[in-house]
Simulated scan of single mutants.
Amino acid sequence: MESTIGLFNTELIKPRQPWKTLPDVELTTAAYVDWYNHRQLHGEIGHVPPVEYENNHYLATTKPQGTPNVQDLYRTRNGSRHAVRADPGSSEDPPGWMTNEAPEQRD
């Protein structure tokens, strides 16, 4: 198996010698790395580019984020349920304030 740096030198650096300026080498290197990661098919990972393989890996291993149940938003750390006062300065308490009853859902 060939090393990545050996492949880089064989395919890119040596055939184009002598390089005129360092920015020429840097720009060409950036283009090569982009090609290698996004378009080069790699046999060890199923003949897909590394970026595609990585994306597939994360899609397969991460759990989808669900939306919380509205009633769960009223649960405290110890599991009791109560409404949260929207306006602390208000003299009117919302339904279920400081009780174990969940407030009614509004449409």
Rank of each mutant, 00 (worst) to 15 (best):
F8K: 00
H42Y: 03
T10F: 08
E52K: 06
Y36W: 14
D34N: 14
G66R: 12
R106M: 10
Q71P: 00
S91G: 12
A60I: 07
A60V: 03
V70R: 12
D87H: 12
L41A: 11
R81S: 08
T29W: 03
E52T: 13
P23H: 10
E92M: 11
Y58S: 03
T62M: 14
W35S: 03
Q65I: 15
G43E: 05
K14Y: 05
M1G: 09
R106D: 04
T61W: 02
Y58D: 06
A31P: 00
T10C: 04
Y53D: 00
A31L: 04
H82R: 15
E44Q: 15
L7F: 05
L12W: 01
P64A: 15
V33G: 01
A102F: 06
L27I: 13
E54D: 15
H47R: 12
P88A: 06
P103H: 05
Y58V: 04
G79T: 09
P88M: 08
L7K: 07
L41F: 05
I45F: 02
L7Y: 02
T67D: 11
V51L: 15
E11T: 08
H42W: 07
Y53E: 01
S80H: 12
D72L: 04
E26D: 06
D24K: 10
T62F: 10
Q65A: 11
Q105S: 11
